[in-house]
Design a protein around this nucleic acid. Structure first.
Lengths: 151, 151
DNA sequence: CATACAATGACATTCACTTTCAAGCAGACA
DNA sequence: TGTCTGCTTGAAAGTGAATGTCATTGTATG
């Protein structure tokens, strides 16, 4: 277990005791799987990974755990409008997404200058900005390379 | 019936005959309601308006019609990740949204310079951009004014 | 320990949306 | 105009993601 992971787990335990909630085997397993994956994912992916090792883990528990991680500031909800709620590890405040239309991978990045400019445009329309999301869809370099190989 | 509306309806009839599809009373009613509304909306809003005049119109028919309008290039799907699919009239290629967290209104605008810059950033990450969506959430000036009045 | 009460998991439910299917209707062609 | 093909419709049933229910289990704390 690396340093970052240990720190996150500490943070989570602190959150639990502050709220009078309890640490359980399931939550620990789900948090491990989530952190080990180290990329944004949707719940069924985690669920399948976990079922491989622990067949008795429940669907609803994974949903509940991820929502809990989000409210603890460990995970960030990502909603790309495809009907699935994804979660990413909440380091920093990235809200710019590159979504590959081929493989579905979601890459996150942050670009402060665009956001500042965009927010200013909104203000000029009399709009008070609270949050911002930029979503770029296309083809990632990996899929592009594969497509090249086929032709 | 104004000029723009007539033009859109012509475009739709052309689309239908090209595809071997049929013009029906329902499709005409739904298209009228959609164009008359003149702002992005979700299906239930249209459905309720239509039910007022024509009680026999079906839920599924409205869904089907809007999908049809989208594939005819008349409507544009807007997916803001709140679980509702909205539709806007497809004039131009706007894909920047101001969503009011208070009243839920969706205002669309376009900002070419941001998009060009953003696409360039993506390319530098080896990503080929196909489409772009910018979503700003906050409070619109109307709601802001009302909030001011209360305090 | 013992006890209170949070958490779990199987199941049912919700919510937006889609599909099914029998009946109806549009449009082409004679 | 009549007929006939097959697209459309509407009610109801079905999907699929996510959440609620509830009896049972497990955990932290006294």
């Amino acid at each position: 277990m690396n340093q970052t992971k240990r720190k996150v787990k500490e943070q989570f335990h602190l959150f639990l005791s502050n709220k009078g909630l309890k640490g359980t085997l399931q939550r620990s397993l789900i948090l491990d799987a989530f952190l080990d994956l180290d990329r944004s994912t949707h719940i069924d992916e985690l669920y399948l990974i976990l079922r491989g090792k622990h067949p008795n883990i429940g669907h609803a528990t994974v949903y509940r755990a991820l929502r809990l991680f989000a409210s603890a500031g460990i995970a960030r909800e990502i909603n790309l409008g495809d009907g699935l709620t994804r979660y990413g590890v909440a380091g920093g405040r990235r809200h710019d997404y590159l979504v590959c239309n081929d493989c579905g991978t979601v890459t996150e990045f942050e670009n402060g200058s665009i956001e500042r400019y965009q927010a200013e445009v909104a203000r000029s329309m009399g709009f008070t900005v609270q949050s911002l999301k930029i979503e770029l869809r296309g083809v990632c370099n990996r899929c592009m390379a594969q497509a090249g190989r086929h032709s």
